[in-house]
Structures are given as structure tokens and as C-alpha cells.
């Protein structure tokens, strides 16, 4: 293989054998990532569809169940994720400019923010667990419809809300965990100086993934926390 005439063109060590040049390789990876994100949209789309239908059917119960979520923690987490998207962009920029130290700092910050998000999420889930809001045999939701305080909440409908809440935030958190893994890997390579202004595709594509997971949360926050908050 190595002595074939094509080998002469191997300027960059990151260029894989089956691509003609770095440009083609970068464009292929980028398109691959966008297509992967399209499949992710369809994946979350199935749950958003289920959410939409039951929210329309059981709006009052969904409102009541939603009000039991901690809006402050949810808002803090939204801010944390938006900041982390910023640090990702800064890390990519640092790679484009060839500033290794900045790259490492921004990637480390992204990791810290990602872990902070997961920490807050863990706190929220633990309190839900203590309140018996986990769907299953022990599920119990005390409360009344926000607009009609004399009307109790339907247990089954509240349970569907929490099923969707845990399925959607759980799937989102799983993506966050995977993201943390990816960014640890990136941090290691950034520290070793793998990414240069000529080759930073992994950084850019992982950034796309991170932004996607961020955007999912930006939809989840209002849909789950802010259904019927008016006082």
C-alpha cells in the first residue's frame, strides 16, 4: 500500500488513504455529522410527538405535574448549557488560530459545565424519587389542577407526564454523558496538540453534537417546566 503512487500526496498525517485531499475528508466528516444529527432529530421526534399528543389530551394534569418541577434548577441548567455552547465555539476558534493553551482551557470549561448540568439533573431526579414521582407501582402525585384548585389531578395522566419527563430528560442526559466522554477525549488530544489550523475536524464535529444536545434542552425546558406557570 505504502509504495503506491497515491502515497506521494499524503501531506497531512491525518489524511486517510481513501480521500483525495483534506478538503474532501473534512467535507465528508461534516456531512456525516449533519446526517447523524438528522437521525437524532427523528429519534427525539418520536418522544416529542408522544408528548404533544398527551399534552393536548391531558393539559390540566400536565400543567399540575409540570409545576412540581423545580423551575430555578431548570433555568440554571439552561444557562449552564448555553454557556457551554459558547465555550465549545471558543475552543474551535482557538484551534483555528492554533492556540493550544486556549483550546485546552475552553475544552476543560466545557467539561466542567457539562458535569455541572448533570449534577443539577441528579439533584432534581433525587428529589423526584423522594416525592414518589417516579412512574411505577409506587407512583403517587398529590395536587390539584392549577386553574381549578378544587379538582384533584388524575394519577394516570400525571404518571404519563412523568414517564415522558424521565424518558426525555433521561435520553438527553445520556447524550450529555456521551458528550462528556467525547470532550474528555478531545481535551486529551488538544493537550497533546493534535488539532491544528489545518486539522480540527473532530473538534468541529463534536462541537456540532454538543450544540445539538444543547438545543434539545432548550426545547425540553419550556415544554416540561413551563406548561402552566401563570400565577
Amino acid at each position: 500500500m505504502a509504495d503506491s503512487p497515491i502515497a506521494v500526496e499524503h501531506h497531512n498525517p491525518a489524511l486517510k488513504h481513501h480521500f483525495a485531499d483534506m478538503e474532501q475528508q473534512r467535507e465528508a466528516s461534516s456531512l456525516g455529522m449533519w446526517l447523524f444529527l438528522a437521525t437524532e432529530i427523528m429519534f427525539f421526534g418520536g418522544m416529542f410527538c408522544a408528548y404533544l399528543i398527551y399534552r393536548l389530551w391531558y393539559f390540566p394534569d400536565f400543567g399540575a405535574a409540570s409545576n412540581s418541577l423545580d423551575i430555578t434548577l431548570g433555568a440554571v441548567n439552561t444557562a449552564v448549557l448555553i454557556c457551554s455552547s459558547l465555550t465549545v465555539v471558543m475552543a474551535v476558534r482557538a484551534a483555528q488560530l492554533g492556540k493550544r493553551q486556549q483550546q485546552v482551557i475552553y475544552l476543560a470549561l466545557t467539561l466542567v459545565l457539562g458535569l455541572a448540568f448533570l449534577g443539577v439533573k441528579a439533584v432534581e431526579w433525587t428529589s423526584k424519587f423522594k416525592e414518589h414521582h417516579i412512574p411505577g407501582p409506587t407512583f403517587n402525585f398529590e395536587g390539584s389542577i392549577p386553574s381549578h384548585p378544587d379538582q384533584p389531578v388524575d394519577q394516570h395522566h400525571a404518571q404519563i407526564f412523568f414517564s415522558l419527563y424521565f424518558a426525555m430528560t433521561g435520553m438527553h442526559a445520556l447524550h450529555m454523558v456521551i458528550g462528556v466522554g467525547i470532550f474528555s477525549y478531545l481535551l486529551y488530544h488538544a493537550w497533546k496538540g493534535t488539532y491544528t489550523p489545518e486539522y480540527y475536524t473532530p473538534l468541529e464535529n463534536s462541537g456540532l453534537y454538543w450544540h445539538f444536545v444543547d438545543i434539545v434542552w432548550i426545547y425540553l425546558f419550556p415544554l416540561l417546566y413551563l406548561i402552566d406557570r401563570k400565577k
Binding site: E40, F43, G46, P135, G136, P137, H156, S163, A167, M171
Partner: peptide
């Protein structure tokens, strides 16, 4: 298409294991 059936099967598995009610 495939991601949609994937998430549907996840919901079936969860419902069967935890009785979500979806």
C-alpha cells in the same frame, strides 16, 4: 425512519419494565 422505530421500541421496553402507561 429507523430512529423512530428505535425510540418506539425503547418506549415499549420501558413500559413493559416499569409500567409507564404510555
Amino acid at each position: 425512519g429507523t430512529p423512530v422505530v428505535a425510540v418506539t421500541l425503547v418506549l415499549v421496553v420501558l413500559e413493559r419494565a416499569l409500567h409507564l402507561g404510555i
